[in-house]
């Protein structure tokens, strides 16, 4: 067994070496020969969500005759910058990026715009010179999630929000959408959204938003955050998870506390545990943003731009991927479609 373990590790190292080398070689060497279009699709982290987006990238690669490398930075913004820099030095023809910190990455994104075609996806950087944004309106999605909370808790109650990081524009917009919907505030113009500060309670007529707990992408922390809420707020009515893994973590805590049905859960994205929870009646619903479409349309638009076709750019520089609200009545159909997209 000991030998097997060592052999396994060594083999892992050797294989890692073998498969990685040709990739980089083709990145640098190939354009000169047949000039295929090389793109890069950069995520904001490692998450099952991005695996579905990758499936969309792969389909579009075939359809539009390009190659696209999918880069998932494991450790936040520093890793993301490093990965984009190496992609740029490989001389790519187009870059789709999900900025981790839109406001402060503007200069960096603009630098990238000088050497290649850049679009944003999933999370936008509206102040940069990116050519367009492929994604959903996160504020609108937040409002939809707020409606789900209202359905789940028609009498009103206490709500806690969970998210990995709050620096990201999409989490800020989703959070604000949920809060504004629960407080029955009017829908503001896209550039006039007022953000409530993350600390402190926000008290509305029927709903009280107790706070927003972050976990910096640590799944164990996400679960213990939910447990701590259950312990400290016995009458918590609803937990809203803004990122894909948040509600699965809350669901585990709710199950262990035997509070299924007593604490409502509203989610974003389409983690398997969330969908199973909806089917079982433990999760009220989720807002799916169709990551497959992000991957597909990012590559479609970049492939067109790289070939000099400006008509691929959407109106107002925003290609809106519609959201899907998944509840118990449509969860089975949704799961079947998802399995098809993932090639399962």
């Amino acid at each position: 067994m000991r030998k097997a373990g060592i052999a396994c590790i060594l083999m892992g190292v050797v294989m890692a070496g073998c498969t990685k080398v040709p990739e980089t070689a083709s990145d640098t060497g190939a354009p000169a020969e047949s000039d295929p279009i090389q793109l890069a699709f950069v995520t904001n982290g490692v998450d099952p969500f991005w695996n579905i987006a990758t499936a969309g990238v792969r389909t579009a690669e075939q359809e539009f005759g390009v190659t696209c490398e999918v880069l998932m930075p494991p450790k936040g913004i520093v890793d993301q910058k490093r990965m984009i820099e190496s992609a740029l030095s490989n001389g790519i023809d187009g870059l789709a990026i999900s900025p981790i910190d839109a406001a402060n990455q503007v200069a960096f994104i603009n630098d990238a715009c000088k050497v290649t075609k850049v679009i944003t996806q999933d999370s936008d950087a509206p102040d940069s010179e990116r050519l367009c944004f492929v994604g959903m309106d996160n504020y609108k999605a937040g409002r939809e999630a707020g409606k789900l909370v209202k359905e789940a808790l028609p009498e009103g109650g206490k709500v806690m929000i969970y998210v990995g990081r709050l620096e990201q524009l999409n989490s800020q917009q989703r959070r604000q959408g949920v809060i504004d919907e629960l407080l029955d505030r009017p829908i503001p113009a896209p550039d006039a959204i007022q953000y409530d500060p993350p600390g402190g309670e926000i008290v509305g007529e029927r709903y009280t938003i107790l706070g927003t707990r972050t976990d910096s992408f640590d799944y164990a922390k996400a679960k213990s955050n939910a447990e701590d809420t259950i312990a400290s707020v016995p009458d918590i009515g609803c937990m809203v998870g803004l990122w894909a893994y948040n509600v699965p973590a809350c669901l585990a805590a709710v199950k262990e506390a035997n509070k299924v049905g007593k604490i409502q859960l509203v989610s974003f994205d389409e983690d398997n545990a969330t969908l199973q929870g909806i089917a079982d009646g433990a999760v009220h619903g989720t807002i799916s943003q169709q990551p497959y479409e992000y991957g597909y349309h990012s590559v479609r638009i970049l492939a067109g731009l790289a070939r000099g076709d400006e008509t691929v750019l959407p109106e107002n520089d925003f290609y809106e991927v519609p959201i899907v609200v998944v509840k118990k009545d449509n969860v089975e159909a949704f799961r079947t479609k998802l399995a098809e997209l993932r090639g399962e």
């Binding site: 490692v46 992408f217 679960k223």
Partner: peptide
């Protein structure tokens, strides 16, 4: 134990 407890294991993040 962490893997069994959390039940959603992210190879790039677990134990960081």
């Amino acid at each position: 134990l962490f893997a069994l407890d959390v039940n959603s294991i992210q190879p790039s993040g677990l134990g960081e």
